[in-house]
Simulated scan of single mutants.
Amino acid sequence: MSEYQYYEFMAIDRPLTCEEQEELRSLSTRARITATSFTNEYQWGNFRGDPRRMVEQYYDAHLYLTNWGTHQVILRVPKRQVTQRAVEPYCVDEYVEAWTTKAHLILDLRSEDESGDWDEGAEDSLGTLAGVRAELASGDHRALYLAWLSGIGAWALQDDDEDEYQATLEPPVPAGLDRLTAPQRALADFLRVDADLLAVAAQASPPAPAPRKRPGKKELAPLIAALPETEKNDLLLRLALGDEPQLGAELLRRLRGEPPVATVPGQRSVAELLDAAHALATERRQGAERVRVEARAKKPAALAAEEEAIWRAVEDHVGCKQAARYDIAVALLVELRDACDHVGRGPEFRQRLAALRDRYRHLPGLLRRLDDRALRG
């Protein structure tokens, strides 16, 4: 299979000007460029642009996919809404990186799968993944924790020092890990977060608070009047500049005194999380195997209960005197023999089988197939 790379960029907070679109055209003559998007695919060669710089200068979200297993999403968030200090505990070398520009914080999240399995529909993920930006801006750090889980899941596949696993503690655990939003669920899937690891992590996660009803004029008017004059001026200036689409949500949280989504201090080591996830996966596999064993155990009894119907089916197939129908009849008899042996009716089965062989002794093709499967009565 030839190499395949997919690049997509999205402008959310403001559309690009015509001049900016022309600047980007110099990076690719084949890209589909609009005021809010940049998309290109490569089956040979490489993209000449630097995705990180493009996000720093132009775009709010970027998705990159390859058919050798790379999944990458880069998000840009205003520094007023997410600080680097809040993000740093969730960073994992190569998998979760963060840096700042003059006005923004940039998050680079990556997952690698050397098996190269292609995820159908992953190219359509950016629209949903971009919803994580607004959640981060609201103080919801579940996406950061999911990215960290993806990183340590990949870390566990490497031949690293066990002592480091024991010494590294998890970052703050956000509330609501057991009830992810649609963007968070999409991010977990895109970054290949192990389901068992997420289930273990969610055990220490407090419940997410229920969303509050949007306030009306009567509630908001006195709250706005009580704001300090300097803060009002600052908010009006930011609103007039138009660079912060999330400003309205930020103002509502400020007026109502809503804290960001709660977190609790991380207390478990990476080793504890990985071991617990492994134990959960083992328990789940063993449970599934028990179900399969029980189903197999029930099957002979069920077949034996249908003995008369199976004999009628055998007679119907043999009566057609066709090789393919003989094969079906013999397969049914093999299953019925094993089922009758399982429930203690083997002698009765063999007595009826002997009668069938005698009745159709003039059909050598059938008799040969019965002999091949040791169905001799």
Score class of each variant (00 low, 15 high):
residue 91 C to K: 07
residue 111 S to W: 01
residue 127 G to M: 05
residue 121 G to D: 06
residue 106 I to E: 07
residue 89 P to T: 00
residue 91 C to E: 05
residue 125 S to K: 08
residue 98 A to F: 00
residue 136 L to V: 01
residue 131 G to Y: 07
residue 136 L to P: 01
residue 90 Y to L: 05
residue 123 E to N: 07
residue 112 E to R: 06
residue 129 L to H: 10
residue 103 A to T: 07
residue 91 C to I: 00
residue 92 V to D: 03
residue 110 R to Q: 10
residue 120 E to S: 14
residue 87 V to S: 11
residue 142 R to V: 04
residue 110 R to G: 15
residue 120 E to C: 11
residue 123 E to A: 13
residue 134 A to C: 11
residue 108 D to M: 12
residue 113 D to V: 07
residue 125 S to A: 15
residue 112 E to D: 15
residue 143 A to W: 01
residue 125 S to F: 06
residue 91 C to M: 04
residue 100 T to S: 13
residue 144 L to W: 04
residue 101 T to Y: 06
residue 84 Q to G: 14
residue 113 D to Y: 09
residue 100 T to I: 02
residue 98 A to G: 08
residue 111 S to I: 02
residue 140 D to I: 04
residue 100 T to L: 08
residue 93 D to P: 06
residue 123 E to W: 05
residue 98 A to C: 13
residue 99 W to T: 00
residue 137 A to V: 00
residue 121 G to S: 02
residue 141 H to D: 01
residue 86 A to G: 09
residue 101 T to I: 07
residue 126 L to I: 04
residue 138 S to W: 03
residue 141 H to F: 01
residue 138 S to N: 10
residue 108 D to K: 13
residue 119 D to N: 15
residue 123 E to T: 05
residue 91 C to Q: 06
residue 118 W to H: 03
residue 131 G to M: 08
residue 103 A to Q: 11
residue 127 G to V: 03
residue 127 G to L: 06
residue 130 A to P: 04
residue 120 E to I: 08
residue 93 D to M: 08
residue 110 R to S: 13
